[in-house]
Each structure stands twice: as structure tokens, then as C-alpha cells.
Amino acid sequence: MNRKKLIGNIVRYALYAVVAAFFIWAISNSYFDYIFSQSGTFLVLLRQHIVLVLVSSLLAILIAVPAGILITRPKFKRAEWIVSNIANLGQTIPSLAVLALMISFLGIGFQTAVFALFIYSILPIFRNTVAGIDSIDKNMIDAAKGMGMKPHQILFRIELPNSAYSILAGIRTAVVLNIGTAALAYVVGAGGLGVWIFTGINLFDNGFLISGAIPVTLLAIVADFILRRVEYAVVPKGSRRIEKA
């Protein structure tokens, strides 16, 4: 038993050591210097990045969640199979391609990037909304109907609270993906921290690479962490355990 714990600890601390070594190496080679020497530019890029992600994610939530609710209503149930398959298919198109293709419709710029990110974020949210609602025990809906609940009461009191976990997980997935895809917004001239990463690749400049890549990574990890907290706070206490199982 203690040996297993020892192995676990060794791995854990070895990883800490690798991460620490990386940062010490990067700092000692002053790879982070651009963040401070060009802090004005850095803040602009960071803000662009965050705005890109926020605007496109919010739009995607506003479209995808209602669409997922609509497609699971009995009236549209038949279309569900087709729509879900199109959604799955859409997921296989590379994010870079979605961005690139938008150039030909919308030209270069911020709107193009927002639109492409929005399109790309719809799918995970939509899929999880549908999956969450579909996974609700049909007996529960039957009980609700039998008690005389109206369709909108069933939706807001039963279906949405009990699929909140799945819907929020879809939103989290979409936002985290979005932070990564927004780093590609450079190719449509929409700025963001990707500008430094691509500059680093083109100029073979480690400083730009690290100063761009590490903040993007931290942004994704922090967003994931915060959204997990939100999930925990929002999902009804009684539904939590079941979803985890």
C-alpha cells in the first residue's frame, strides 16, 4: 500500500519539478520578457482574445441551448436523428478550415473570427443539451405528466434542472475549445494572443512563442476551473450525484 502511495507521490512531484524546471528555464532565458517590455501590446492582445471568446460563446449559448430544447420536443423528435448527425459531421471539420472559409464570405477581421468561433461553439453545446434532455428518465416525465404538469412546467422544473449538468459541461467544453481556436484568429486578422504565437513560429523567436502560448494555456485552464465551479454551484444538489455515476 505504501509503495503505491510512494509511486504516486514520485510521479506527482516529478511533474511539479518538470513544470517548475520549464518555468525556471523560460524565465532565465527571458522568454517571458515581451509580456513586460511590450505590456501595452500584450494587454491589447489579451483583451482581444477574451472578447473574441466571450462574444462568440455567448452567442453560441443563446442559439444552441434553445435549439437543443426545440429539437427534443415531441413535434421535432423525428428531425433529431438527422440534426444530430449533421452536428456530428460538422464536428469533424477542422477549426482552422472554418476560420479560413469565413474569409471568403466575410473578409478579414474581427467579425469574421467571432462568426467562425460562434459556429464552431454551437455544436458541443447543442449536442450536450440534446444528450442531457434525452438522458432524463422517461418515468420521471411520465410522473410529471400524470400529476398534471403543463409542458412548459415539465421543461423548466424537471427537464432543464436535471440536464443542467450536461448542458453546462457542453458550454465548458465549447469555451475551452474556443480559447484554443481563438488563438488561430490571427489567420483572419482578428488579433488575440495567437498573434504572438504565430510571430514566434514565423520568426523562430522563443520569446514570442512562450509569451503567447503560456497565457493562452493559463486562460484555458482558468476558464475550465471557473466553469467547473459554476457547474457545481448551479446544478441542483439532488441531480449532481446521479450525473456523476
Binding site: K4, K5, I7, G8, N9, V11, R12, L15, F22, A26, Y31, V176, I179, G180, T181, A183, L184, G194, I197, G200, I201, N206, L209, I210, G212, A213, I214, V216, T217, A220, I221, A223, D224
Partner: peptide, 27 residues
């Protein structure tokens, strides 16, 4: 014990955007 550690690291690593990971790996 190791499983908890590794799975936690895996879930964090999966959130790292690919372009950012390339950006770190090149140097």
C-alpha cells in the same frame, strides 16, 4: 493514489489548446 494524480493531470492537459502546446514545444 497514482490514478487520481494522473487523471487530474490528464484533464488539465486536455484543456491546453494545441497551438499553445506547439508554441511551448518548439523552444
Amino acid at each position: 493514489y497514482l490514478a487520481d494524480t494522473v487523471l487530474q493531470i490528464a484533464s488539465i492537459t486536455l484543456t491546453i489548446p494545441s497551438i499553445a502546446l506547439f508554441g511551448v514545444m518548439i523552444p
